[in-house]
Design a protein around this nucleic acid. Sequence first.
DNA 1: AATGAATGAGTGTTCATTCAT
DNA 2: AATGAATGAACACTCATTCAT
Lengths: 181, 181, 181, 181
Amino acid sequence: MIAENGFFHSPVSAIAARAGVADGTVYLYFKSKDQILRTAIDTAFLHFFERAREEMATTEDAAQQLRILVRLHLETLAANHALAVVMQTEVRQSARFIAEFSRQHLVDYLNLTREVIRRGQQQGIFRPDVSDRTVAHCLFGALDEMVSSWVFTERPFEPGTTASQVLDIIFRGIETQSNHA
Amino acid sequence: MIAENGFFHSPVSAIAARAGVADGTVYLYFKSKDQILRTAIDTAFLHFFERAREEMATTEDAAQQLRILVRLHLETLAANHALAVVMQTEVRQSARFIAEFSRQHLVDYLNLTREVIRRGQQQGIFRPDVSDRTVAHCLFGALDEMVSSWVFTERPFEPGTTASQVLDIIFRGIETQSNHA
Amino acid sequence: MIAENGFFHSPVSAIAARAGVADGTVYLYFKSKDQILRTAIDTAFLHFFERAREEMATTEDAAQQLRILVRLHLETLAANHALAVVMQTEVRQSARFIAEFSRQHLVDYLNLTREVIRRGQQQGIFRPDVSDRTVAHCLFGALDEMVSSWVFTERPFEPGTTASQVLDIIFRGIETQSNHA
Amino acid sequence: MIAENGFFHSPVSAIAARAGVADGTVYLYFKSKDQILRTAIDTAFLHFFERAREEMATTEDAAQQLRILVRLHLETLAANHALAVVMQTEVRQSARFIAEFSRQHLVDYLNLTREVIRRGQQQGIFRPDVSDRTVAHCLFGALDEMVSSWVFTERPFEPGTTASQVLDIIFRGIETQSNHA
DNA sequence: AATGAATGAGTGTTCATTCAT
DNA sequence: AATGAATGAACACTCATTCAT
C-alpha cells in the first residue's frame, strides 16, 4: 500500500482494508500510523542483518564477505519490489524522520561494511590509503543508486549482474596493486 | 521550511509566514502546494546544469570534466544546507512523485555524466569494458551518499576533500592500466 | 439550517452542529455538502410521489385526482415550513444545479399532472382545445406562487382554502361548457 | 456571467474580467458583490415598470391591460436569456435575500396586476367572487413557470403564443358569464 | 479613474485516533 | 480480540475586499 501510494497518501483506513481488518484493529498492533512504517523498516533491516551475519560467517576472506553483502543487498530488494520502493522513498521521507529513526539502520549497515573493509585492509587485499568510511559510502551509494534506477523505471533487474558490475569498479578502485596484478 | 520539517509537515500557512506573506499570496505565485516544491527543485537543477555546462566547456579532458562535475555537485549542496536537505529527502518523497517528476532531473544529470564517461573511454583514459551507465550510477550514488551522510549527521563537510576521496576510488576503478601506471 | 440561512451561507460545520454531530460525521453519510441538499430534495419528492400515487388511486375522476394533487402539494409544504423554504429557494439555486438535478423532479411532477389533465380531456370534463402542458404549467405555477407568497411573508397559510381558490380559477378555465353549466 | 455560473460560483474577478476591467474597478461602481446582483435586478424591474406604465396607459380596458402586462413579461425575458436565467434563479437565491430584497419587486408587480384585476371586476368583465390577490398569484405563477420551463430546457420560446395559451385559461377562469357568452 | 497585487478570514474535506459495543 | 462509527483538529485553497501606485 505504502509502496504504491506513498506513506502520506495512504490513509490508515486503506492500509487496514488492504490487510483485511477494521481500522481500529490496526491500533491494537501499532501505536500510531508512524509505527506501521517504522516496524516495516525495522523488520526488514533485522532480517537483512540476520542473514548477512549468517552468510558472512562462512568465510574469512574480506573480499568474499563484501561480495556476500552486495549480493544480499540487491537480492533482498529484487525479491520484494514493494520493500524496495519503501526503502528508496519512504525511508527518506523527511529530515526529521531520517535523523530520528531510519539513519541509524543505515549507519549500522555502513558500520558492518566498514568492518569488512578494514579487515580487507589488514589482510592486505584492500588499499590502506583510503578511509574505510569513504569506501563504505561509495559502495553503498553505488548499490543504492542501482536499486533506485531499477525501482523508478521499468527496466528489468538482475541482482547478480548488477553486483558484478558495481564490484568490478569498486574492487579495482580499492584493491592493492599486488592483488590486482 | 520544507528542509526543516519536511514537505508534508509544512503547512502552506507556515511556508507563507516564513516568506513574510499572507497565505493567499502564495497562490498568486504557485498553483498548488506541490508546485512550490517542484519549482524549488526545478530551479536548483536549472542553475546546476547551467553552471555545469559553462565550467565543463573550459576543458576537453574527460577526467577533468568529471572532476568539475563532482566538485560542483558537492559545492552546490555544501553551500546551501537547506537545498541539500531537500535534495536528499523531499526529492524522493514518494514513488509516484519521483516517477512523475523528480527522476527526470536525475536522469538528465546521469546522462550528462555518461557522456563524459563515454568521451573518456574514447580518449582512452577510462576502461572501455565497463558500461557508462554503471559508472555514472556508481559515481552519482557515491556522491549522493556522501552528501546524505553530511546532511543527516552533524559532521563538518569539506566538498574538496570529499571530492578527492570519492574520485580517488572511482578513477582508480575505471581508469585504464596504461593511464594508471 | 439551510432553510434559515440558505445553502451557501450554511457552513457544513453549522449543519453538523445543528444535527448534533461532529463535522466529520456529516461525511460518513453524505459524500459532499452538495449531496446534503440533493438528498433532502430527493427524499421530499420521493415521499410526495409515493403519497400522490396512493391517494390518486382511490378515484378515477380526473377532476378529483387533480384536487388530490393540489391539496397534497399545499399540505405537504404547509406542514413543513423549512421544507417549503428550501423548495421555493434552494431548489432553484443556480441554472446549472437546476438543469443537472432539480428540474427533473419538477418535470416528473408536471408529467404526472399532465397525465391527469389528458385523462380529464378524454373523460370530457376538461376542454380538449388547450394543451395539457400549458395547463400543467399554469396549475403548478399558480400553486408555486401561492406557496412562495406564504413562505416569504408572515401571512398565515390555509392549504385547504388556497387549494379551493386556485382550483376555482383553473377549473373554470379548463372545464368544458357542458360541465360548467 | 452570473446567468451562466450562478452568483455564488461567479468570483468578482471573473465578473470583472468579463466586463473587461480590473477587479478593483468593480468596487468603484458597486459597494459589494451583492450590490452587483441587486443593481442588475433593480434595473431590470425599473425598466419593466416604466414600459408597463407607458403601454398600459394606452387603454382603459382591464382585459387589454392584462394582455399588455403578460406580453411584456414574456417578451422582456424572451429577449434577454441571461436576464431570464437570473430572474428564475438568483432572484430566489436564499430566503433571507428574497425577504430582504427581491420579494419587494414581485410584490410591486403583483400589486400592479391586482389593480388591473380589480379594475376589471369593477368594469364587470372579471368575476367579482375571486380575490384579486389569488388571481394575480395564479397569473404570475403561470407565466413564471412558462418562463422557467423555457429557461431550463432547450425548447424554443414564442412569447406571443405562450401569452395566448396562458391567457386563454386564466381569462376563461376569471371572466364573467355574460362576457364569456 | 483605474489597476491588480496582496490580504486573511472562511470553508469543504480528510483522516489519525478513540472507544462503546 | 475485533469492530467501525464518531470525532474534531488540521489544512489546502478560494475569493471578496482593500489600497498603494
